[in-house]
Simulated assay, not measured.
Amino acid sequence: MTIPTYRVPLTTLLFFVCCPWAFSAPSSIQSHDAFFAAIAAHCGKAYEGKVTVDNAPGDAFANKTLIMHVRRCNENQLQVPFHVGDDASRTWLITKTGSGLSLKHDHRHKDGSEDALTQYGGHTLDGGWPQVQSFPADQYSKNLFVDAQIPQSIGNTWQMFIYPKVFTYRLIRQGREFRVDFDLTKPITPPPAPWGYQD
Rank of each mutant, 00 (worst) to 15 (best):
L117T: 10
Q119K: 13
D87F: 15
D54L: 01
F15R: 10
T52F: 05
A40G: 12
M1I: 07
D181E: 14
A34S: 15
H32W: 02
L125P: 08
Y6P: 07
W21Q: 06
T168W: 01
F61N: 03
N63R: 01
T12W: 11
G121N: 01
V80N: 12
D33S: 04
V80R: 11
P130D: 12
L171C: 03
W129T: 10
Q133D: 05
Q77H: 06
P164S: 06
F178P: 03
L66H: 06
F15E: 15
T118C: 02
Y140N: 08
S113V: 04
H83A: 14
Q174N: 15
E48W: 01
T157G: 05
P191W: 01
V53P: 00
D126M: 00
C18K: 09
Q119I: 07
D181I: 13
F61S: 03
P4W: 09
G128L: 03
K165I: 08
K165D: 15
K96A: 13
D86C: 00
K45E: 13
G175A: 03
D115T: 07
S141D: 05
N143P: 00
K50R: 14
T12G: 11
T124N: 03
K50I: 10
A116W: 07
K165Y: 08
L93N: 13
L13I: 10
R7D: 09
A37M: 11
L93P: 02
Q174L: 05
F16Q: 11
S153K: 06
A56E: 12
A22W: 08
L101P: 00
S134C: 02
F145H: 09
E114K: 15
D86V: 04
I94P: 01
P151M: 04
